[in-house]
Design a protein around this nucleic acid. Structure first.
Length: 632
RNA sequence: GGGCCCGUGGUCUAGUCAGGAUUAUGAUGCUGGCCUCCGGAGCCGGUGGUCGUGGGUUCAAAUCCCACCGGGCCCGCCA
C-alpha cells in the first residue's frame, strides 16, 4: 500500500504509513489513518483519498490482504486473507518454537544493566523487589532482542550503614546465628543504629543543657523520645540482641567515633577493618543470593564499591575532577558545581530539566577525606563503560538528582559519549499502606515473607483443586505459581507509577494475574495431552471461525509486541499482551470444540492453534522471567 | 521556595511519546446466567466514567501547548 501511495504522490514520502488496530471486526482486521495525515497537504478530502487507494490497490491470491475498504471519513480498512495469514503464522510458530517472536535487533549492542544493588545491611524488602524483578526482566528482554547483556550488582559496602552494622556485629563478638544471614544482619543493623542514635541524642542533650538552649533542647528531647520508643519496640522483638547490644554500646564512650574510624580504616584498606566489613557484607549477600535464586534472578558480576576505592580509581577520578575547574573546596570538602556545568555545557536538554533550573552543587568528600557515594558512583560509571557501550541503571526515582550529577560529572570530565549512553531507568516507589517501611526501625516487609505467603496461598489453591497430585508436585507447582504471581503483580504496572501494595495486591490470583495466564496455559496442555501427536501436514486454511482468526491474528502480532516492549524497556506491555491472548483463548475454548471433533483434519488444525498459543504464552512470560507451571 | 514524576468508573489499570471511527481498554466490586465439560483459577450478560480543573491549537484532544489544583519523591559531610 505504501508503494502505491508513494508512486501516486511522490512528495508524500515524508509521511510514514502506519498500520493500526481496529475498534472491532466490522472495521476490518487492520486499518490506516494515512489519508487524514496527507489530506491537508494534497488539498483532497481524506475520504476521497481513501476511495482512490481502495479502488487502485492490486491484490491477488498470494497477498495477505483480501480486500481494502474506504470507511468513515477517511479510514482505510484492511481485511486479511486468512488462508494465507493462518498458515504463515502457525507454521512460523511451529517451526521457530521457543525463539518465535524474538526478532533480533539490526544493531546489536553491548549493554550493562545495573540493578538491585541493595545495601548489604538488611534483608530485601518488597519495595526493592520491584527493582530486582524489573531489572531482571529488562536483561532477559534485551538478550532476547539480540544484545549482549551483562547484569551487575553494585555492592555498597563503603558507606556509613555498612560501618554501623559491622560495628554492631563486632561488639556482639561476631556471633553466628542460624537464622537466614541477611535477616540476622538486618536485626543487628536496626538495633545498633537505634542504640547509636539514642546515644548520640543523649550526648547532644547533655551539651545543650550546659548551653541553656531551650528550643533546640526540646527538639532533641522529642527525637530522643521517639528513638527510645523504637528501642523499646526492638527490644520486645529481639530481646536477647538488644540486651547484650545495649550493654556493650553503653560501655563504649564514643560509638559514633568508632563507626567513623572503622569507615576511614576500611577506605584505607586496613586489614582488620577489611576482614570485618567484608565478613558482614558477605553474610548479607549470601542471604540475597538465596532469595534471588528462588526468584530465578542471577547476576553476571558483583562489583564491590570498596574495590573501586582500593584500586585507586576513585581518587584518580577525584583528581581529574579537581582539574576541570568545576570542583571547589569548602572547608576541606570538595564540591562539584553541577549547576554551573549544566549552564556552561548547555546540558538542560540531555538531562531533561528546564533551562533556568539551577542544579545545586554536590559534595564529593567528607571533611575527614573519605569519599561519598556519588564520587564512587562516578568512578563506577567509568568502569562500566570499559565493559560495554550502553549502561542502564535500574534505580528508584528518588535518586534522580544523584543520577543527574553523575552524568554531569562525566560531561565535565570530557566523557560526553558516556553521559549520553547512560540511562537512568527509574521507577516509582512501592508502599504498603500505613506505616512507612524503615530498615532502621526494623519495620520492613521482606521479599522472603512475601514469597512464603504467596507460595502458601498457592498451595492451598492447588491442594483444593487437584488433591490427587503427589505432595512433592503440589509443592513445586505452588512455588512456581506463587513466585510468578508476585513477579506479574510488580511487572504489570507501568514502571513510572508508584504503587501502594497490599498483601492481596502482590499476591493476586484473580484475572489479570500470572495464575490466570497459567490457567490458560494448563488448559492448552490438557487439550494437547488428549489430542496426542498432531500430523505433519496441517490444513491451516480450515481455521475460519471468527474467534480463531482473531486468536491467530493476536499470535501473529507477538513479534511486534515484543520489539516494542524491548525497545521501550516496558515489560508491562508483555504482561498486557499475555493477558489479552489468554482471555481470547479462554473465550475460544468456551465456544469452540476441539477434541470431540470427528473431522480429523479440522481437529488437528485447531490443535496446532492451541499448540501455537501455548508456545507464545510460554515465550511471552519467559522473556520477563515468569515460569509457567505445566499443571496446576 | 525550586526540580522531577503521577492524576482515566467506588478501587486498580491500558491507551498519552507518534491526536482520529457519534462505542474510552480491561480488571475488581455489586449483580443475573452457564459444568451428563476439552480442567469453572474459566465463560456469557447487567451495573457503574465531568479521562484532575480551566483555557488554547485542530476538521478532530484522554493524547499536543499554557496555567492552575491534588498526590508522591528529591534538594545531606546518607545511600
Amino acid at each position: 500500500m505504501a508503494r502505491l501511495f508513494y508512486t501516486k504522490f511522490p512528495d508524500m514520502k515524508s509521511f510514514q504509513v502506519d498500520i493500526e488496530e481496529t475498534p472491532g471486526p466490522e472495521f476490518g482486521d487492520l486499518s490506516s489513518i494515512i489519508c487524514f495525515k496527507v489530506s491537508k497537504t494534497l488539498g483532497i478530502p481524506p475520504i476521497d483519498l481513501a476511495k482512490m487507494v481502495a479502488t487502485n490497490i492490486k491484490l491477488d491470491e498470494s497477498s495477505l490482504v483480501k480486500s481494502v475498504e474506504a470507511a468513515g471519513s477517511g479510514y482505510l480498512n484492511f481485511f486479511l486473507n486468512y488462508k494465507k495469514v493462518n498458515g504463515l503464522t502457525l507454521h512460523s510458530v511451529r517451526t521457530l518454537k521457543e525463539s518465535y517472536g524474538f526478532l533480533k535487533s539490526e544493531s546489536p549492542d553491548s549493554i550493562l544493566v545495573e540493578h538491585s544493588s541493595i545495601n548489604p545491611v538488611h534483608a530485601i524488602h518488597v519495595g526493592q523487589a520491584r527493582n530486582s524483578i524489573l531489572g531482571d526482566a529488562l536483561c532477559r528482554m534485551l538478550r532476547a532482542r539480540g544484545h549482549h547483556v551483562q547484569a551487575h550488582f553494585y555492592v555498597n559496602d563503603a558507606g556509613r550503614q555498612t560501618a554501623i552494622v559491622a560495628y554492631g556485629y563486632e561488639r556482639l563478638g561476631r556471633v553466628k546465628s542460624n537464622i537466614k544471614p541477611d535477616h540476622y544482619i538486618g536485626q543487628i543493623y536496626s538495633v545498633t543504629s537505634c542504640l547509636v542514635e539514642v546515644r548520640n541524642l543523649k550526648d547532644r542533650l547533655r551539651r545543650l543543657i550546659d548551653e541553656r538552649k531551650k528550643d533546640e533542647r526540646l527538639e532533641v528531647q522529642k527525637r530522643l523520645d521517639e528513638w527510645t520508643g523504637i528501642a523499646f519496640e526492638l527490644s520486645s522483638r529481639y530481646p536477647e540482641l538488644v540486651g547484650r547490644r545495649s550493654r556493650v554500646i553503653s560501655d563504649d564512650h564514643d560509638p559514633e567515633g568508632q563507626i567513623n574510624g572503622l569507615l576511614k580504616r576500611y577506605e584505607s584498606k586496613d586489614q582488620a577493618a577489611r576482614d570485618l566489613i567484608r565478613e558482614v557484607s558477605g553474610l548479607c549477600i549470601e542471604g540475597f543470593k538465596q532469595t534471588f535464586s528462588r526468584l530465578g534472578i542471577s547476576f553476571d558480576f558483583w562489583d564491590w564499591e570498596s574495590d573501586l576505592i582500593w584500586s585507586g580509581r576513585v581518587s584518580d577520578i577525584l583528581k581529574q575532577l579537581s582539574r576541570t575547574g568545576y570542583v571547589s573546596s569548602e572547608g576541606g570538602v570538595l564540591r562539584l558545581e553541577s549547576g554551573r556545568a549544566v549552564k556552561e555545557f548547555g546540558l538542560h536538554r540531555l538531562l531533561g530539566v528546564t533551562k533556568d533550573y539551577d542544579l545545586p552543587s554536590v559534595s564529593l568528600t567528607r571533611s575527614d577525606g573519605t569519599t561519598l557515594y556519588i564520587t564512587r558512583d562516578i568512578a563506577y560509571s567509568i568502569l562500566k563503560f570499559g565493559l560495554c557501550n550502553r549502561v542502564i541503571n535500574v534505580v528508584g526515582m528518588e535518586q534522580l538528582h544523584e543520577q543527574l550529577h553523575v552524568r554531569v560529572a562525566l560531561f565535565v570530565l570530557g566523557m560526553e559519549a558516556m553521559a549520553e549512553r547512560q540511562r537512568h531507568f527509574s521507577f516509582g516507589l512501592v508502599k504498603f499502606p500505613g506505616e512507612k517501611m524503615s530498615s532502621r526501625r526494623g519495620r520492613i516487609i521482606t521479599l522472603d515473607e512475601v514469597c512464603d505467603e504467596a507460595v502458601r496461598r498457592a498451595y492451598l489453591e492447588v491442594d483444593k483443586r487437584t488433591p490427587t497430585l503427589d505432595e512433592l508436585e503440589k509443592k513445586s507447582i505452588a512455588e512456581t505459581i506463587g513466585i510468578g504471581a508476585i513477579k506479574y503483580a510488580l511487572l504489570s504496572v507501568e514502571p513510572a507509577k508508584e504503587v501502594e501494595y497490599s498483601w492481596d495486591r502482590v499476591i493476586d490470583f484473580e484475572t489479570n494475574s500470572a495464575p490466570f495466564i497459567n490457567y490458560g496455559y494448563t488448559r492448552a496442555n490438557g487439550i494437547l495431552r488428549r489430542l496426542g501427536k498432531i500430523g505433519g501436514d496441517v490444513r491451516y486454511e480450515m481455521l475460519t471461525h471468527p474467534l480463531e482468526t482473531r486468536l491467530i491474528l493476536t499470535i501473529a502480532k507477538f513479534p511486534n509486541v515484543f520489539v516494542e516492549a524491548a525497545e521501550k524497556l516496558r515489560p508491562d506491555i508483555l504482561t498486557s499482551y499475555a493477558d489479552l491472548l489468554t482471555k481470547q483463548f479462554h473465550e475460544y475454548y468456551e465456544h469452540v470444540d476441539i477434541t470431540h471433533l470427528e473431522n480429523v483434519e479440522l481437529r488437528d488444525a485447531r490443535g496446532s492453534l492451541v499448540e501455537a498459543l501455548r508456545t507464545v504464552l510460554r515465550n511471552c512470560m519467559g522473556v520477563i522471567g515468569i515460569t509457567l507451571a505445566e499443571r496446576m
